[in-house]
Design a protein around this nucleic acid. Sequence first.
DNA 1: GTCTATAGCCCGATAGAC
DNA 2: GTCTATCGGGCTATAGAC
Lengths: 197, 197
Amino acid sequence: MATSQPRTSRAEQRQKTENRILTAARRLFADSGYDRTTIRAIAAEAKTDPGLVMRYFGSKKELFALVAEIAPDEPVTGTPEQAAEHLLTSLGDKLEAEPSATLAMLRSMLTHPEAAKEVRAAVTNQQRDAAAAFPGDDAVLRAGLIGALTLGTVLGRHLLRLDGLRDAPPEAITALLRPCFHALVDGEAEHAADGQR
Amino acid sequence: MATSQPRTSRAEQRQKTENRILTAARRLFADSGYDRTTIRAIAAEAKTDPGLVMRYFGSKKELFALVAEIAPDEPVTGTPEQAAEHLLTSLGDKLEAEPSATLAMLRSMLTHPEAAKEVRAAVTNQQRDAAAAFPGDDAVLRAGLIGALTLGTVLGRHLLRLDGLRDAPPEAITALLRPCFHALVDGEAEHAADGQR
DNA sequence: GTCTATAGCCCGATAGAC
DNA sequence: GTCTATCGGGCTATAGAC
C-alpha cells in the first residue's frame, strides 16, 4: 500500500527538468534567435527529448514567450536633470549585464514579429513617461532618440560586440553619453553646422 | 541560316527576369530577413519559378550576398569639428532613405552570421578612421559609440519605426544629435552625476 | 533556355509504447 | 509521467521534361 519514497520525488525531478529546459531555451534563443533555435537543440542541451519539451510547454512559440522578456524600466520622474541621470543609470545597468531573457528578445526583434512587438512596446512605454518629464514640444522625439541610442549601445555591446564597446567599463560609457542625454532631455538642438555653440 | 530576330531577344528577356528576381529578393530580405524569406516567395513576387532563381543565382546564400550590401561611408577626415559634421551628414542621409540592399543586411544582422559579419565590418571600418581624427586616448570607444548611436537611430527609424523617429524630418534628428556627436568627438565626458556641468 | 516535378532534409507537433 | 517513433509539411536544391 505505502509507495516507496525515492530521494527525489517525481515532482522534484520534473521541476529540475523544466528548469534545465528553460535555461537551455533562454541561452539558445539569446544566441541564435527564434527561427534558428530548434526544439530538438533545446532538448539536447537540457538532456531530455523533444517530446517532453512540447509536453511541458505546449509549443515553440509559447516557450519563447515564456523565457524571453524585457524587464520593465522604472518610471522616469523628477526634474529633467534627474530624468537624464535616471536614464543614464538605467543604461549603465543594461551595459553591466543584460539577462539572457532580454537578450533572447533583442536577438529576435528584427525577424520575429512577436519579439518586435515586445521591444517596441518596451521602448514606447519608457518613451511616453520620459517625454512627460521633458520640457519642449518635441519631447516625444527626443525621448524616442534616447530610446534608440540606448538600444544601439546595448546592441553594440552585447550582440554585435563592437570594438571598444565590447569591454569598456559601463561607467566609462555612461560618462561619455552624459552630455548626450542631458542635451536631449533639455532639447537644446544646435543649429549652426559651422559655429561651435 | 539566319535566325529570326524577335522584338525582345532571349538575352534581353533573361536580363529582365534577373532584374525582377533581384528586386523581389531585396524587398523580401529587407522585409523579413534571411531565414524567413524563401526562394519560392522571391520567385512568386518576380513572376517566375523557384528553379530559375536557383539556376541564375546558384543558392539562397549567394543571392543574399549579391543583393544585400552596405555602401561604404566616405572616409572621415579633417578637424574634430569637421569630422563630427561629416558623421552627422552621413547619418542624415541614412535617415532620409536607406536603400533596401542595406535594409536587407540590417534586418538580418542579428540572426544571419554572414550579415552580422558585414555590419560589424562596416561599423568597424568607419570607426577606425573616425578614431584617427579624434583627440584623446579613448578615441576608439568614442568612435564606436558614434557608430552604435547611428545604428540605433537608423534601426529605430526604418526597422522598428518608433514613434517620433518614424516620421521626423532627418534634419530635426541630426540637429538634436549635434551636441551628442560633438561631445563624443571632443571626448569631454562629464563626471558628476549631480552637478549639472 | 524555361519550367515542372520531386528528391532529400529538417522542422514542429503528435500518437502511442513503456 | 517519460520517451520513442513518426506524421505532415516546408524548405533548398536537383533532375529531367518540354
